[in-house]
């Protein structure tokens, strides 16, 4: 289930080449002739969810099955919106502060919940998620209640000396690049942490807290760390998206969105870093692209899930594992 610590020494060009091409292509998306605001919106949505789902997976790696992740996106979003709206601070800072706010809550709750095992942890995170959502709905003076907050600033106008001005209000494209940047940063950081000793310690406490403690790994410390890191990026995603959307309301952060995040992650496969990315793309892009069959999209959704559950226990990313030998053979043939 975990990625092997030693990997065959591949030339850096091979390993990063394909990745570099993909990233470059992502930067070029807005330049496509078929580009339109709707496509930009879908891409932004995907990028946001990729951040949220990948950070959820980071929490799951440490053995904590959180079912309340969307709430932290909400905490980040509301914090950022409120700070920019009520205190007039620039969104470029409040987005980070939103993430920090989510992290602070995560540290406290993560510590409180760190004593709980498996199912009980899931249940308490579920409750925490719905409690936060109910709190958002009830604290009308602060959060606008059910109708949410409107009118907090977008990213405004950015003056880059020597390049020109970027007006975020003019189109969705600047937001796309902003979220692309944030998503890539998120993925890079999460990947590096996971491959470092910290990630290994997380996998250790997930497998056996007993053995881990006998070699000096503090279960509490690493559980809280995983939870905090995961919720930081959830908060970041929530705040960035909030400023893009211009509106934030509690219904986006209730139980079902949290559950959807878990579904995206499980479908893509928890064992691979890229799993959440695949899961999000499949489950967000496909329904959006088949808008005409809107009503039946959830059936397709459900159908895909059932297929994966029964045929591919490792999730879609697991497909790569089984296909890799096949790819390798094809690639070798191609070289000749």
């Amino acid at each position: 289930m975990t990625e092997k610590h030693e990997e065959p020494k591949k030339k850096p060009i091979r390993k990063y080449g394909a990745l570099g091409v993909v990233v470059a292509l992502l930067f070029l998306v807005p330049l496509l002739p078929t580009n339109n605001p709707y496509l930009m919106h879908v891409c932004i949505l995907i990028l946001t969810y990729v951040m949220a789902t990948s950070s959820l997976r980071t929490i799951y790696i440490s053995g904590q099955a959180s079912v309340g992740h969307a709430a932290f996106m909400g905490i980040g979003g509301y914090t950022s919106a409120l700070l920019s709206m009520r205190l007039g601070w620039t969104p470029w800072i409040t987005i980070l502060l939103g993430a920090v706010g989510a992290t602070l809550v995560a540290v406290v709750t993560g510590y409180l919940f760190s004593r709980l095992r498996a199912i009980y942890f899931s249940m308490v995170t579920l409750f925490f998620g719905v409690a936060i959502e109910a709190l958002m709905r009830s604290w009308v003076s602060l959060t606008g209640g059910r109708s949410g907050l409107v009118g907090f600033p977008g990213m405004g106008v950015l003056n880059i000396p020597g390049v020109g001005t970027i007006n975020f209000a003019a189109s969705k494209v600047p937001y796309y690049y902003l979220l692309l940047f944030l998503a890539l940063l998120t993925l890079l950081i999460l990947y590096r942490i996971e491959r470092s000793r910290t990630g290994m310690n997380w996998m250790a406490i997930a497998q056996s807290p007993l053995v881990a403690s006998s070699i000096g790994i503090s279960e509490t410390k690493f559980r809280v760390l995983a939870f905090a890191v995961g919720c930081f990026f959830a908060g970041l995603a929530g705040s960035a998206y909030a400023h893009y959307n211009g509106v934030i309301s509690s219904s986006s952060f209730s139980l079902m969105p949290s559950i959807y995040l878990v579904i995206y992650m499980l479908l893509g496969g928890m064992g691979h870093f890229a799993g959440p990315i695949i899961g999000v793309i499949v489950l967000v892009a496909i329904p959006e692209l088949f808008r005409s069959l809107q009503e039946y999209a959830p059936f397709v959704f459900g159908g895909i899930m059932l297929l994966v559950i029964f045929l591919m226990p490792q999730g879609l990313a697991g497909l790569f594992d089984s296909l890799r030998p096949w790819f390798a053979r094809v690639a070798r043939r191609g070289i000749r």
Binding site: V262, I263, L267, E295, Y296, P298, F299, M305, L306, I309
Partner: peptide
Amino acid sequence: FNRTLMFALALIVVMQTAADV
């Protein structure tokens, strides 16, 4: 646990859609 969870969640989505439709 993972697959059971996924299945239950898939079921929710399917049933909600069925009711809607």
